[in-house]
């Protein structure tokens, strides 16, 4: 199974793996633009994308999610426990130094024995780490992928099976949220402005660092895209922040100039339904006999 997330979404891919109870590794690659065009369907063309460097690995066993690794992250147990807050940075550093060339299972036994963590901590941390990696891919929309049947990680990792159904539901929810954000703010080239009763609106409001950063750039001269660039935010992040600010009534998106009529959807002409066939079973049986004999 191979393809591109432009054509088959990650939730669809996971659904296939879940239903087919597949075992193996789903490798996702960086989307490398080629500058060449390819056909999407009979009328539309798009830029061809090739698989670049490997970006993430998701491992499955009999349709269950068991391991995920993204980019350069090694995903070993110490990193996982450090990320979940079960080990401090200092503890993680010391343990890494003392357990070079020791596999994750042996490290887990030592940590449990030394009362650093419990078995439950380890299972929960691994599950959360794995799911977070997959959830973070909800914004991936054009990465090429390939499923490698029966390929498992070469480095020994503790694998905690996770039911894919819940992952798919959560991933769908996140994808819907992204779609909602895109629908709310389809055009990032529009500026933001403050509402007229500015002082009253901002009274007693506590903004996050990200929100402050965006608010500080609000000016009819700055488009949302420019604000995102200046604030070092991705399109998704800026949409989320602006959405929150608009919902709270703290900023407004400047509407496009009047007269820019929305493009009409290209509705097809309604035509009468064609008549269906009125053929007897005898005719079908004769056709079957004929084709069998060919």
């Amino acid at each position: 199974m191979q393809g591109n997330l432009r054509d088959v979404s990650l939730t669809q891919v996971l659904n296939i793996i879940n239903l087919s109870r597949k075992t193996g590794t789903l490798v996702l690659y960086e989307a490398k633009k080629t500058g060449q065009m390819e056909k999407v369907n009979a009328e539309q063309e798009r830029e061809r994308i090739e698989a670049g460097a490997e970006r993430a690995h998701i491992v499955f066993k009999e349709g269950k999610l068991v391991h995920a690794r993204i980019g350069e992250q090694d995903g070993n147990l110490v990193t996982v426990l450090n990320k979940s807050g079960k080990l401090t940075d200092g503890q993680a550093k010391i343990i890494r130094e003392r357990t070079k060339n020791v596999n994750d299972k042996a490290i887990a036994l030592k940590l449990i024995g030394a009362n650093y963590v419990t078995q439950k901590d380890i299972i929960n941390s691994i599950q959360q780490y794995t799911m977070d990696i997959v959830y973070n891919m909800s914004s991936w929309k054009q990465e090429p992928f390939r499923f490698q049947d029966n390929v498992m990680p070469t480095v020994e990792r503790i694998m905690v099976p996770i039911d894919l159904k819940n992952v798919i539901i959560e991933l769908s929810r996140r994808e819907e949220m992204l779609t909602e954000l895109n629908n709310f703010l389809p055009d990032l080239d529009r500026p933001l402005k403050f509402p007229p009763d500015l002082k009253q609106k901002f009274q007693g409001v506590h903004l996050s660092v990200e929100e402050w950063r965006v608010v500080s750039y609000v000016d009819p001269k700055n488009t949302i895209r420019q604000i995102a660039k200046a604030s070092n935010m991705s399109d998704v992040e800026i949409r989320r922040v602006v959405y929150g600010l608009v919902q709270a009534g703290l900023v407004q998106v400047v509407e496009p100039a009047a007269g820019s009529a929305l493009q009409n959807s290209s509705g097809r002409r309604a035509r009468p339904r064609p008549k269906s066939s009125n053929v007897q079973a005898d005719v079908v049986n004769r056709l079957i006999s004929k084709i069998k004999s060919m």
Binding site: Q2, G3, N4, R6, D7, V8, E38, V40, N41, A42
Partner: peptide
């Protein structure tokens, strides 16, 4: 079967 980009179509 080898062109998933045409499945939607």
């Amino acid at each position: 079967s080898a062109k998933p980009e045409t499945f939607r179509e």
